[in-house]
Amino acid sequence: MWEKEININDIKEIRVKTTVYFGIGAITKISDISTQLKNMGIDKILIMTGKNSYKSTGAWDHVEKSLNANEIEYILYDKVTPNPNVVQVDEAAELGKKFGAKAVIGIGGGSPIDAAKGAAILLEYPDKNATELYEFNFTPEKAVPIIAINLTHGTGTEVDRFAVTTIEDKEYKPAIAYDCIYPLYAIDDPALMVSLPKNQTLYVSVDAINHVIEAATTTVSNPFDVLLAKETIRLVVKYLPKALENPNDLEARYYLLYASMIAGTSFDNGLLHFTHALEHPLSGVKPELTHGLGLGMLLPSIIKQIYVAKPNTLAAILSPMVEGLTGDPSEVDKASEGVRKWLHTVGLTEKLSDMGYVESDIEKLTKLVFETPGLSLLVSLAPVDGTEDVVRQIYTDSF
């Protein structure tokens, strides 16, 4: 039983912070949120998003209407890219400073919302920049209020205190985690996600899977993490094929979004380890790599490394994906190959070599895991000793 792998003498901190409006039509709640912001004295807002989806999904119509109705002025930064970088965060923050923004709304998937979190900090620290923030040159204790309007079902960033941004000139992709960047409000509306392309539907859902596998197996995980992991994986295994077959299946989108949200809560509590620590160098070197794809390529090799340390937990949470696991450490290959086979059934078949990486990249990637600010901390939370040899082996096995 997985319960035996929880140390009941450890005192755990369990976090559930953000107010989330969840369900079909939740975007209409932006009206209530805008009214609340105005009542808080917020009359100018910085909005951060990408190029198209904030409009094509219909989210923008509701946001613009509600801000105008409450006489809240806004300024729009729509240059956030997948795997956003510090230049974008600095540009947006500077725009917001000059405008006098008192809050930030992020509209999109993980990239715009994460970038919005960084800008929200910099609006409170006008003498700092995003590179200083992501190289941990200062520790922020405040940020302007953040509103997250989520357009994907994968990252969970709308309910957690994490943000990721790339420092491209160093090929670093660090993650920060501060209480001040919990969104005040979040909107999770599955109707905004029916136009999500098939490959993105797959990759963001794989992101959620990785969140809970890691969170349930770190050295600081708690029973809440395991509970959320079991339900997240059950829901993704059941509903991802349905969403891939019919993008307009709102029930499938609803439960994938719910899985993503509780997965965000899971790793907000249990944190992360190998998969995210090793993926960040992959997309730090190649910013065009989709985060969820990178995670999926690494996952089977990571299961192979960690199963021996957490066999009962992994057997319990992976059961919807891999039948017949008993929690015996000797079934490590069955678990690893079972995860690989499931990924193949939903369409993720790529290896690192397919994405242009070569084996000579392994040393560079391994070095980046331990050099990139914050990633060595994630590695230290793995249930097995996160040595350079282990990291190198995971990359090697993923080719």
Rank of each mutant, 00 (worst) to 15 (best):
T326W: 01
W342Q: 02
D354Q: 11
S283R: 05
L352W: 00
L365N: 13
K310P: 06
M297N: 09
L365R: 12
L318K: 12
I303N: 06
L298H: 00
L293D: 00
G296C: 04
K310I: 05
L348Q: 15
T372Q: 02
L378Y: 01
T345H: 02
Y357H: 01
L298W: 03
D328L: 06
T366A: 10
N312Y: 12
P311H: 13
L375E: 00
E331D: 02
P373G: 08
W342L: 00
F370Q: 07
L352I: 05
S336Y: 08
S376T: 14
Y357S: 03
H291L: 06
K367A: 11
E337G: 09
L299T: 14
E350A: 14
S330M: 10
L343D: 09
V358M: 12
K286Q: 15
G347W: 09
M321Q: 03
I362N: 02
S319L: 10
L314W: 13
T372K: 04
I362K: 02
E331V: 06
G324N: 01
A382Q: 07
V285I: 15
L365F: 00
T290A: 14
T345Q: 13
G284T: 01
I362P: 00
T313R: 02
L295W: 06
E337I: 09
L365E: 12
L293K: 15
G324M: 10
M321F: 12
S360D: 14
T290Q: 15
G386D: 01
V322R: 00
T345M: 02
Q305D: 14
T349K: 14
L318Q: 14
E359H: 10
Y357F: 15
M355P: 05
L314A: 07
V339I: 12
S330I: 13
P329T: 09
K334Y: 05
L293N: 09
M321T: 09
S380T: 01
T366Q: 04
G324C: 06
E350I: 07
T345V: 07
Y307H: 09
G324K: 05
G347I: 02
K310H: 15
D328C: 08
S319I: 03
L352Q: 02
L368T: 05
A316R: 05
V285Y: 11
S360P: 08
S330Q: 13
A316D: 07
K351C: 10
D354K: 04
S360H: 05
L325P: 04
L293T: 07
V358K: 14
T349H: 11
D328R: 03
L325W: 03
E323A: 11
K334E: 07
